[in-house]
Amino acid sequence: MIYHIRQTTSTNDEARDARYRHGDVVWAEWQSAGRGQRGHTWLCPEGLNITFSAILEPTFLPAPEQFLFTEVAALALVDAMRDYGIEARIKWTNDLYVGDCKCAGMLIEHDLRGANLARSIAGIGLNINQREFDPSLPNPTSMALAAGREFDREEVLRCCIDHLMARYAQLEAGDREGLQRDYRARMYRLGERHLFRLPDGTLFQAAVEGVRPTGELQLRHDDGTLHEYLFRQVEFLIEGRDPQPAGEH
């Protein structure tokens, strides 16, 4: 069921209420404290885009494999945007890009029960009809800018939910290899050599080769060696853009 509310601190906060159960979606027109990755805020002008959280209960999924749930959410958004003629790519770990511009972001939060997940919240912000952005943001875009037309927000939301449940069913059925294969095929900059930065400021060039089921990004360095990085251990740099972490607003 979709719960459409006027305002909340963040849809992920609201979705923690026990009254929401598996398959429910909280859609808010305004978030006073929307969150992105790394503690950054997510900005969303009222009436132009969608911010929502989907509540799922993947009790079958071991905690070390929780990244597969992130893959489910990311692939669902790619699938939905493709329905509208927009080719998006997944920028590890939590963003959707059209070209070199960010169109959507996710914040995934889990509760555990023993060794497995108990309750997972997929918080999603998708830029739909916004055409003007805060100039301090490094590289935003929207579906409207990508496609040259406006969209019915509720229709897009329902399309995203349909694809989310379809991808979730794929995970529940045990098709981990299929999810991994599809996620890799839709990764941003797959196989391309680009610039990356380590937390200490070191710059290096490498090519994205894939991602492990446990979430590590696999980068092939110029010397031919393959290195794996966890979230926060490496940063994409986008040439010609302000080199800030592009996974957040």
Results as ranks from 00 to 15, higher is better:
residue 202 T to I: 08
residue 220 R to K: 15
residue 199 P to L: 11
residue 60 F to Q: 14
residue 132 E to A: 09
residue 138 P to N: 08
residue 47 G to I: 08
residue 112 L to N: 14
residue 180 Q to V: 00
residue 138 P to M: 05
residue 189 R to N: 05
residue 244 Q to L: 13
residue 198 L to R: 14
residue 30 W to M: 11
residue 139 N to Q: 05
residue 4 H to W: 12
residue 178 G to Y: 06
residue 244 Q to Y: 06
residue 87 E to F: 08
residue 183 Y to V: 06
residue 74 A to L: 10
residue 20 Y to Q: 04
residue 242 D to M: 03
residue 6 R to F: 04
residue 164 L to T: 05
residue 30 W to Q: 14
residue 246 A to I: 07
residue 149 R to L: 12
residue 109 E to W: 05
residue 101 C to M: 06
residue 204 F to D: 02
residue 84 Y to R: 10
residue 191 G to I: 03
residue 65 E to Q: 15
residue 190 L to M: 09
residue 120 S to D: 01
residue 140 P to S: 13
residue 93 T to H: 07
residue 168 Y to C: 04
residue 153 R to W: 00
residue 161 I to D: 01
residue 3 Y to T: 04
residue 177 E to W: 03
residue 221 H to C: 14
residue 56 L to E: 03
residue 39 G to D: 10
residue 171 L to I: 07
residue 116 N to F: 13
residue 59 T to S: 15
residue 126 L to H: 02
residue 195 L to S: 14
residue 134 D to T: 09
residue 32 S to V: 12
residue 164 L to W: 09
residue 73 A to K: 02
residue 20 Y to F: 15
residue 130 Q to Y: 12
residue 193 R to V: 13
residue 140 P to N: 13
residue 185 A to P: 00
residue 171 L to P: 07
residue 182 D to Q: 15
residue 137 L to I: 12
residue 170 Q to I: 08
residue 168 Y to F: 15
residue 247 G to F: 05
residue 138 P to S: 13
residue 16 R to A: 09
residue 116 N to D: 12
residue 134 D to M: 07
residue 106 M to D: 01
residue 193 R to K: 12
residue 153 R to M: 07
residue 192 E to F: 04
residue 89 R to I: 01
residue 185 A to Y: 00
residue 243 P to S: 13
residue 55 I to S: 01
residue 66 Q to L: 10
residue 159 C to S: 13
residue 230 L to I: 02
residue 113 R to H: 13
residue 232 R to D: 08
residue 1 M to S: 13
residue 54 A to Y: 03
residue 124 I to R: 03
residue 119 R to H: 02
residue 234 V to G: 03
residue 165 M to H: 10
residue 132 E to M: 05
residue 92 W to V: 00
residue 53 S to G: 06
residue 107 L to A: 08
residue 177 E to G: 01
residue 190 L to Y: 11
residue 207 A to Q: 09
residue 146 A to M: 12
residue 244 Q to K: 13
residue 148 G to Y: 14
residue 80 A to I: 09
residue 163 H to P: 06
residue 28 A to N: 07
residue 57 E to G: 08
residue 82 R to H: 14
residue 129 N to S: 02
residue 162 D to G: 09
residue 233 Q to K: 10
residue 152 D to H: 11
residue 75 L to M: 14
residue 227 H to W: 14
residue 171 L to T: 01
residue 214 T to M: 07
residue 167 R to V: 00
residue 130 Q to T: 14
residue 189 R to Y: 11
residue 129 N to C: 00
residue 69 F to V: 03
residue 232 R to A: 07
residue 191 G to F: 09
